[in-house]
């Protein structure tokens, strides 16, 4: 039956659906299944743009790519590296906070569970850019400790701004994962005199931990793709530096597609393998269950 096409749902492979688990891998699925032809089309556009724009001046496509070539080491080592740095620290902060918030959501203490639910929903449903602006503008840019003034770099504030929605989404992954374990497991552990904490850490979490990894990676890819948002706040990451580089090259319109096209390609090259890996893990864990 493997590979046979059928309209009968009973003959299709069984895909268990985790109860209450937002194992939504939409982004990774979309990215991982992008056909190579899309990239070709994009490359064509990037090359064609300077030809179209050439009518406006005497700057050629070759010169535009030559400029990109010269700037590339700088853009990668100073710009893209910062994007990755921001994504790492954001994911770290968001995961730690999100796990705590998610465990809070399944707490038997009603007020704690309700508070954690509210915080989760609040940050899950807020526009990322608004959260970023609030954190960037509300937080001080320097702090004074014992007479010494410490400057807080913009990018660390960006980490906190981005970590809020990540925290909320990871909180949901944790809650969904825990609630996808059948209640019989809780009852069996209870009847064997396990405490609630022991049950959670020794029986429930080991069963759902693996199921949480693919959605967690999915959010990492989404986050990495979203890091250029912080360029709107002046953080000197890839997109900000690309704009500055183009200004230094006299702002020829022919530069636009090569420079921003390069940004797109480098983000794609970084996130595409993650998306593929996410889907592979998801399939593997789904079979094991």
């Amino acid at each position: 039956m493997e590979g046979a096409t059928t309209d009968l749902p009973v003959l299709r492979p069984f895909r268990p659906v985790a109860r209450g688990g937002p194992a939504d891998l939409g982004f990774s699925r979309w990215l991982a299944e992008m056909p190579p032809i899309a990239l070709l089309g994009f490359a064509f556009l990037a090359c064609a743009w300077p030809i179209v724009a050439a009518a406006q001046g005497n700057f050629t496509t070759a010169q535009a790519f030559d400029a990109l070539w010269r700037w590339m080491p700088f853009l990668v080592s100073k710009g893209f590296a910062l994007n990755i740095l921001i994504s790492f620290f954001t994911m770290l902060t968001g995961t730690v906070a999100g796990v705590l918030l998610g465990l809070g959501q399944v707490s038997p203490l009603r007020p704690l569970a309700a508070t954690c639910w509210f915080v989760t929903q609040l940050f899950r449903n807020s526009p990322w850019l608004v959260l970023l602006f609030i954190v960037m503008l509300a937080f001080p840019f320097e702090i004074e400790i014992a007479g010494t003034v410490y400057l807080i770099p913009d990018w660390t504030k960006a980490v906190f701004g981005l970590a809020l929605p990540i925290m909320a989404n990871i909180s949901e992954i944790v809650r969904g994962g825990i609630q996808s374990v059948p209640t019989g497991q809780w009852e069996a552990a209870e009847s064997l005199a396990f405490t609630r904490g022991q049950t959670l850490w020794q029986i429930i979490l080991p069963q759902c931990f693996k199921r949480m990894i693919p959605p967690w990676m999915n959010w990492y890819a989404i986050l990495t793709m979203a890091t250029p948002l912080v360029s709107l706040l002046g953080v000197e990451e890839l997109v900000t530096l690309s704009r500055q580089a183009m200004e230094a090259e006299d702002n020829h319109p022919e530069l636009l597609m090569p420079f921003f096209g390069f940004a797109l390609v480098i983000f794609f090259l970084y996130c595409y393998p993650i998306a593929r890996w996410t889907l592979r893990l998801e399939r593997r864990f789904a079979v094991r269950q």
């Binding site: 059948p182 009852e187 069996a188 009847s191 405490t195």
Partner: peptide, 17 residues
């Protein structure tokens, strides 16, 4: 916990880990 150390239970759905 003290009660459940004295009373064992087996379920319809086994509920093994």
């Amino acid at each position: 916990l003290a009660l459940r150390k004295k009373v064992g239970m087996v379920f319809q759905q086994y509920n093994l880990f």
